[in-house]
Design a protein around this nucleic acid. Structure first.
Lengths: 229, 229
DNA sequence: TTGGCTAGTATGTCTGGACATAATAAACCT
DNA sequence: AGGTTTATTATGTCCAGACATACTAGCCAA
């Protein structure tokens, strides 16, 4: 009658919380009791409850038992957009222009973020992404040359992004979002007025020893980052 | 010698991917083979691989096997900020002012988002949050009166937010972020110039039948939303 | 009262086995 | 050669049992 499996148990637990059968802060039956009620093994209940705990719906502690989270830590997760895919998802055609490719001493805020990697010169790549020929986002990227192989790849041929995803696996880093006014360069490239509110994404990618790359992405006006939760 | 458990297996798999022992797109050994290599049960390997698949590092298909993700779907997950907690985390003192509390016909963009719930009047609540006495964020909230109990709670006593988290469990919804220029009201309340770039969070919460509440949060200039990935 | 010890207990994890499911590869029949 | 059925196989899930681990609570002694 009821859909079987650990997902069914998870949904049933969620339902009981939603209808306030089990209220926030209260303790719920033990895994063994639930297993008996649902007529399954404890491992199956365990799997369901672990999933809900990771989602922030339940709080579990050994011996203390499992309780409904008092303040459900509502967490959203975003798929970090790959620009080309994001444009394609809108049914538009993605193109890009390489605006600059130099070796430069990094500006102070970038150097501060990249730490040791920014002691010498960095490779600076500036790209304009277009959707159906209209400016979509401006990307400024600083790349630590130490991560490149000896005969450096020809970034006129392969895009820096593509080289990175193909050659740097599983790096860590962090990402930040902010609202800023367009500076002179961004305003010019995106074709907007100076100071126009711009959604900015900044991403720092770290390798084992040093920072690999720092990206600053300025989206065209009207951009929204959205997700379900 | 090596830390035991499914997390150790997960980390070892990650390590092999990082050092390009297993390259993106290539297939990795089957669960049975890995179980034999690590000297554990298949279930243990399964748990480790499932975790990596959820993280977007691996792609798994029945019969086809498990392969390293070609384009690691880098995903960030944010804890949706509860303003008071966010201010407290900075070591500042959180206070708030109730600026407005009315029954109003919703403005068109809000009505469009809330659908059926917005056919009549909505409860409109406007709040200014302060950190150490300085404006931190301006919240405009529209609330579907149908979700309130018959003797409506006194929102002069308990904040709308607190009433909602205590009485509406596990609702779904969606959340969006954008950069906008401060309108007259926000500029006045936050004490900034008209058109100043503002980081805006919009959140829609849906109940079983209709929308429950729509919140528009305008953060003071300089706000950054940040997370590790 | 305070501090430390001890027993009990709920969750965390693992095992070795089993069957279900989906997708591929091989065999088969036009 | 081309399309269809069948066999194979890797993952998905489940079970029953076991031990590990961390936490609570109660007891006892200083």
């Amino acid at each position: 009658m009821m859909a079987q499996g650990w997902e069914a148990i998870r949904d049933e637990v969620k339902r009981r919380i939603r209808v306030r059968d089990w209220t926030p802060g209260s303790i719920i039956p033990t895994e063994a009791e639930l297993a008996q009620e649902f007529g399954c093994a404890r491992g199956t209940v365990n799997r369901a409850l672990i999933d809900l705990a990771r989602a922030g719906v339940l709080e579990r502690r050994r011996k203390a038992g499992t309780r409904v989270a008092l303040l459900p830590v509502r967490q959203a997760h975003f798929a970090i957009p790959v620009i080309r895919a994001e444009i394609a998802a809108r049914g538009q055609i993605a193109t890009h222009q390489l605006l600059a490719l130099d070796r430069v001493p990094p500006p102070v805020p970038v150097a501060a973020r990249m730490g040791r990697a920014a002691e010498g010169h960095l490779i600076y790549v500036e790209t304009l992404f277009l959707a159906d020929g209209r400016p979509f986002a401006h990307e400024a990227r600083w790349l630590n040359p130490a991560v490149l192989p000896d005969p450096s790849p020809d970034f006129a041929e392969i895009s820096v992004n593509e080289w990175l995803v193909a050659n740097v696996a599983l790096a860590t880093g962090d990402i930040a979002f902010a609202a800023e006014g367009a500076d002179a360069r961004v305003a010019q490239v995106l074709g907007i007025a100076l100071g126009t509110p711009i959604f900015v994404t900044e991403r720092l990618t770290r390798g084992a020893e040093a920072a690999i790359t720092f990206v600053r992405l300025s989206h065209a006006p009207g951009y929204r980052m959205q997700t379900a939760l």
